[in-house]
Simulated assay, not measured.
Amino acid sequence: MRLILNVIWLVFGGLWLALGYLLAALICFVLIITIPFGFASLRIASYALWPFGRTVIDKPGTRPGALIGNVIWVLLFGIWLAIGHVVTAVAMAVTIIGIPLALANLKMIPVSLVPLGKEIVPVDSINQPLRAAA
């Protein structure tokens, strides 16, 4: 099921969202001082290409630099990428088949706003420790 949803996602919006993140990464790499933002944008671009079966978690430990970086990110790129997710989610939610895709778009808004200090992991790796404990 994840494969089917990912293919539909890729065709109907995932490619365009990933290109938006790649453009943000390119701008970050050109501006040199924002290179850490470029790497975060590349991570999110891969997530935007193939979101089903993966999730976002917080990296362990406190990161004071991530807070400052996230504020700068929101002002430069985050708000525009989040708006892109909302617009795409509304367009996808028009059909019944598009509702899971719209929900995936809405799931990406928090990481598009504050990407630093986050990690994208497979859903199975989160559920694995829970299964071992049971």
Score class of each variant (00 low, 15 high):
58 D>M: 09
58 D>I: 02
59 K>T: 12
60 P>I: 08
61 G>Y: 07
64 P>G: 06
66 A>E: 02
67 L>R: 07
67 L>E: 09
68 I>R: 05
69 G>C: 05
70 N>D: 02
70 N>L: 03
71 V>C: 07
71 V>Y: 03
74 V>S: 00
74 V>E: 01
75 L>A: 07
76 L>W: 07
76 L>T: 04
77 F>I: 03
78 G>V: 02
78 G>L: 03
79 I>K: 01
79 I>E: 00
80 W>V: 02
81 L>I: 06
81 L>P: 01
81 L>R: 01
81 L>W: 03
83 I>E: 09
83 I>K: 05
83 I>P: 04
84 G>S: 14
84 G>M: 12
85 H>V: 11
85 H>R: 09
85 H>A: 10
85 H>P: 05
87 V>K: 13
88 T>S: 15
88 T>G: 15
89 A>H: 07
89 A>C: 12
89 A>W: 04
90 V>E: 12
91 A>Q: 12
92 M>E: 15
92 M>F: 15
92 M>A: 15
95 T>V: 14
96 I>D: 10
96 I>R: 11
97 I>R: 07
98 G>E: 11
99 I>Q: 02
100 P>E: 04
100 P>R: 03
100 P>Q: 03
101 L>K: 00
101 L>D: 02
102 A>C: 10
105 N>W: 00
105 N>Q: 13
106 L>S: 05
107 K>F: 12
108 M>Q: 14
108 M>A: 14
108 M>H: 10
110 P>Y: 11
111 V>L: 05
111 V>D: 00
114 V>E: 10
114 V>R: 10
114 V>T: 09
114 V>H: 06
115 P>Y: 06
115 P>G: 02
116 L>A: 04
117 G>P: 05
118 K>I: 07
119 E>S: 11
119 E>H: 08
120 I>W: 01
120 I>N: 01
120 I>L: 07
120 I>V: 14
121 V>I: 14
121 V>A: 11
121 V>P: 09
121 V>D: 10
121 V>E: 12
121 V>H: 06
121 V>R: 07
122 P>E: 04
123 V>K: 08
123 V>S: 07
124 D>T: 11
124 D>E: 13
125 S>P: 01
125 S>K: 08
